[in-house]
Write a protein that binds this DNA or RNA. Structure first.
Lengths: 158, 158
DNA sequence: AGTTGACTTAGAGTGGACTCCAGTTGCTAC
DNA sequence: GTAGCAACTGGAGTCCACTCTAAGTCAACT
């Protein structure tokens, strides 16, 4: 398979594929007589694995460690397994954090924002959510108060 | 609360807190007579919310959108709700991806790496995992084979 | 023979999210 | 009163993971 096909198949740009190869995340891909990459089934399997891990947030660094061990052969199996287990732990932790955030988001949507109608006007006032609302109210007070209105430099240099 | 306390409480560096304020993610924090930040309860609630969202991977851009609407008052409730719902969607999607990755990792650990003993030697050979193994084997063949390494630039002019 | 378009390379540039730095001010302790 | 330390400011630097550019090669088509 040529780079464009692989790119489509895995939804990774050709640049990204070349980048992965360059940093050693993918093995050196074979070239044909005119120097064009020809991805084998095995290369694709590797890409599939890497893509899966990356999309879950596994760092390139960890993946590199893993594939580096791979190249060293069977004697590194235990170390490789350890890496996978470590990454599994990390993923597990992240998922727990995300679940907590989901709960919070759900609470906010279902409780705090429940009285919002379709066309964007609010139907009732609410008064039991601290978080940003209170801070925002305070901010409004501050802004309305003394001239103290710091220049609002948004989004650094552009 | 002074910045150092807040920093400890939420495990965010003072730099990060100042950064968040600078870009408008946090409201302008009140200062005492000598210009030192004094974080209110409301500020802390906002920080707590932001930290929670950030640690789940919600982008600063989205959070900024949200707090910007907040400053515009009640008429933006519907829009704010929409943002939260969108972020909930994104989180949900991410979690699904992560779950799939977890499954894959679990499979690999439990099947592919099951015959690794404590001290790092492998006990048995395995032969039914494509992925990187095959690619690695291929790579080893390539390395052992022809000269490989040299780029074939014949007429090179830099 | 010339043009198109996919490919090649090394290397530079980008965007997001911090993180650090230099210089200054202000509080507390000795 | 001066040393030490925490805080302040604007701006520069860093890290990660790409992403883009320039200059070139090659096969196919007109």
């Amino acid at each position: 398979m040529k780079i464009q096909e692989v790119s489509k198949k895995f939804e990774l740009t050709a640049d990204t594929l070349r980048y992965y190869e360059r940093i050693g995340l993918l093995p050196h891909i074979g070239r044909n007589e005119s120097g064009i990459r020809e991805y084998s089934e095995e290369d694709c399997a590797a890409i599939d694995f890497i893509k899966c891990m990356r999309s879950a947030g596994v760092s390139i660094e960890s993946l590199l460690e893993y594939v580096t061990l791979f190249k060293e052969g069977d004697k590194t199996r235990a170390a490789r397994k350890a890496i996978l287990m470590e990454e599994r732990e990390k993923l597990q932790d992240k998922m727990e954090i995300m679940e907590a955030t989901m709960d919070r988001l759900n609470w906010k949507i279902e409780n705090y924002y429940k009285w919002v109608d379709d066309n964007g006007a609010e139907l009732k006032k609410q008064h039991n959510c601290a978080e940003l609302e209170a801070a925002a109210r305070q901010e409004q007070k501050r802004a309305a108060g003394p001239k103290k209105r710091a220049p609002k430099k948004t989004t650094s240099s552009k």
